[in-house]
Nucleic acid binder design. Sequence first.
DNA 1: GAGCACTGC
Length: 753
Amino acid sequence: MGTERKRKVSLFDVVDETSVSAKIAKSNGIGATMNNTNSSINGWNGKPYSQRYFEILEKRKTLPVWHQKDEFLQVLKANQVVILVGETGSGKTTQIPQFVLEGVDIETPDRRRKMMVACTQPRRVAAMSVSRRVAEEMDVTIGEEVGYSIRFEDCSSARTVLKYLTDGMLLREAMTDPLLERYKVIILDEAHERTLATDVLFGLLKEVLKNRPDLKLVVMSATLEAEKFQGYFNSAPLMKVPGRLHPVEIFYTQEPERDYLEAAIRTVVQIHLCEPLGDILVFLTGEEEIEDACRKINKEVSNLGDQVGPVKAVPLYSTLPPAMQQKIFEPAPPSLTEGGPPGRKIVVSTNIAETSLTIDGIVYVIDPGFAKQKVYNPRVRVESLLVSPISKASAHQRSGRAGRTQPGKCFRLYTEKSFHNDLQPQTYPEILRSNLANTVLTLKKLGIDDLVHFDFMDPPAPETLMRALEVLNYLGALDDEGNLTDLGEKMSEFPLDPQMSKMLVESPKYNCSNEILSISSMLSVKGVKCLGCHQQLSCLGSMPPAGMHHRILIPNCFVRPREAQKAADEAKARFGHIDGDHLTLLNVYHAYKQNNEDPTWCYENFVNHRALKSADNVRQQLVRIMTRFNLKLCSTDFNSRDYYVNIRKAMLSGYFMQVAHLERTGHYLTVKDNQVVHLHPSNCLDHKPEWVIYNEYVLTSRNFIRTVTDVRGEWLIDVAPHYYDLTNFPQCEAKRVLEKLYRKREKDRENRK
DNA sequence: GAGCACTGC
């Protein structure tokens, strides 16, 4: 205990910088080489430094983190794990990895190859853009000494010494390289976001560090949670880097607000009337609410007459197409009259503006204190979205958005008392809010056998883990002892849910892996709903003219513009397969390929070209994995009666736990769980099948099952007899039907004899 | 006859 305390304190002691850097330079190969060679030559690629390098270097020297370089390297040298806390603007994401490269010896006995430094990011765009920036700072070509790796794109080479990658990607790498032996230092950035992948990496790295004394870990985080990290990593030293944000004044309401939407709009108008120039950022929970608020804001302000400056309220949410998202970067509208009051831009956004997207020029933030958050109910195995209060950390992050370019103000639409008493300190980490079937499969593949004693920073509910183990056991990925089976090994390699991976691995047995690949890919692309005209969506046209926004719906890949609903429905009907939505998706994919992936064809047929292109991309990745396992790519003859039957049976091999039965009352009940569900109205069935297989269960205005296909009761007992074992089945109508089917099967067998 | 916080492999 005494030594730990001493170690922590020493971090904040004044360090004699010259002696430290001298020691560091002496103690390692790279730093020494770089210091000793002519400073006009880049030690990484042997080329002379460009003029730009020195220009950027001057800017780098002004970053807060720059002044703690020697201190950081000293701490890193003395410890295996270092926790670094730095607020926005400290420069930690770009600079710390470069410091590491200077201070740590990455040479290997094989002089031709060096070890790497990895820096993880929760988002792809960040991995890409930060690595580009750092390559520029180091004056090297992106993809050479500095690279990045994200799904579908590995921009790195044998020369790469610093690699930015998504946290999910590092986890994938760990599956083939369990000790992460290519890396000398791993930096987990944005650790406070606590993504599922980061949380799994925490536990995994804690194990790996024991077996790799030469490996070092740097955990970088933005907020208060640092002490929790410190506790988790055996009192690793903590270093703090100041941020560079302007001060933000916080205001609370005197009384709780009954209607936060109304209060938010009222606050926007008040700011606009009373506060100096500067743009406003409003946080709301979802698309519908955001569009509504934008309309109301624009209307209310224009009703105030021309004594008041004009406003432009722009929506921002992830499913808005990129071209529409660009609108948030347009300048505020000019004053209506010469010398009249100036205009103001108002961005109304979901949580996307909290972390993923930064908008400069925001001076005012309005925070009603809510966000839609994923919750998982292990009992019914359903994930759903709930509007719930945000955490203190989240509120802090939101207010910080007001101080990026100048001092700002944040209006919290709740009382100060409520902030202190009601808000949780941190957002519940994702691992506590998710279905963990896929995570458990990954952990098993990573060699973690004892999940109960795995060192999670926040252990998930035992019931969630039990559910995950149960699902994987039913799927045959784990045996009864909980060990990974050969099937499970293969399944874990697919970047998909276990049900879908199982269906893919089994599909050659049903002689339809080509078709199952297409369906899986189509199911993997998310729907895009957006505003704008049809032209724009089809990727053919440009932005719609101002004021010409129509509401458009695209479930999965289908486009349905409000002004052409009938034509769109007719187009969809042409692809429709009466036996179900999965088969309809297959038809769309086939038609897309037959028409040479032509965007014009997509436009004419009301399908989203972008979605199909991305499905095709996913498909190629899945094909590569199938080929690696020697899983046959095959199809049943299209003219055979079994063509669709085989596909539907193959689907059941993975989704036999997602089946609903039509009761005599006319309602569907999910099998075993006996939940009342309704076919989602987007389905293309022309009848109500007795048994349906569904892709997802969504809780919205009612319990819906979405993307459904007709299956036969007989297939259930053929494909998944272990799950449809009636000795372990709740009393219900479905059970009685299945009993009959089993009896019929018995009789048939006797007759044949 | 309805509706999608945000990521990631």
